[in-house]
Simulated scan of single mutants.
Amino acid sequence: MGKPWYKLRTPKENVMVQFFNCTVVRTLVIIFYALAKRYKSRSGNNRAHWLNVAKDKYSSKLIRDMKTVFAVLFLYIPLPIFWSLFDQQGSRWTFQASHMDGNVLGIQIVPDQMQVVNPAMVLILIPIFDKLINPCFMKLQIMENCLHRMAVGGLFASAAFLSAGILELILETTYPKQPEEKHASINIINTLPCNVKVLNPFSPVQKINSSGMHKFEDIACDNFTKYTLLVEASEKCGTIYLGRHRHNLEVAAVELQTDTVLIGINLDNKIQAYITDPVDFQKSLSGKPRLSSIHLHDVTISLKNQAGLQDIYFVHSSNSSFLADSAYMELPQGIFLNYMRCLHQILLI
Rank of each mutant, 00 (worst) to 15 (best):
Y328G: 01
R26V: 06
W83F: 15
A220W: 01
T174A: 13
P78H: 10
T68D: 11
V104C: 06
A324M: 05
N200E: 01
I63S: 06
G90N: 10
P4N: 07
V205D: 10
K12C: 06
I133C: 01
N190L: 05
F202L: 03
L309H: 08
N195G: 08
P289I: 03
A48E: 14
F82L: 10
Q115H: 03
L309D: 15
V69T: 07
L199D: 09
D259R: 13
F216I: 02
I219Q: 01
S318R: 07
D112Q: 13
L323T: 05
E217V: 11
M150C: 07
F19T: 11
D112E: 14
I63T: 13
H99R: 13
S318H: 12
P176Y: 01
A151D: 03
I77C: 04
K270T: 09
V254C: 03
F137N: 10
F224I: 02
E232N: 08
R290E: 11
R9V: 15
N21G: 14
E250P: 00
S293I: 11
Y274D: 02
K131G: 08
M143C: 11
Q89H: 10
L28K: 09
G153Y: 05
Q96M: 15
M143H: 02
T27C: 07
G106T: 07
H148I: 02
L199E: 12
R42W: 05
I335L: 08
K57L: 14
I31W: 08
Q178Y: 03
V196D: 02
S302Q: 15
E255M: 14
R341N: 14
F129L: 04
K57R: 13
G153H: 01
G154D: 02
V261C: 07
V104K: 03
Q89F: 13
K215N: 13
P4K: 05
F281C: 02
A159K: 02
H247F: 15
I133A: 04
A327Y: 08
F216E: 02
A34Y: 01
F86A: 12
P135S: 04
N14H: 09
Q178R: 13
F137V: 00
K304S: 12
Y241T: 14
L51R: 04
H99W: 06
E144L: 09
V24L: 13
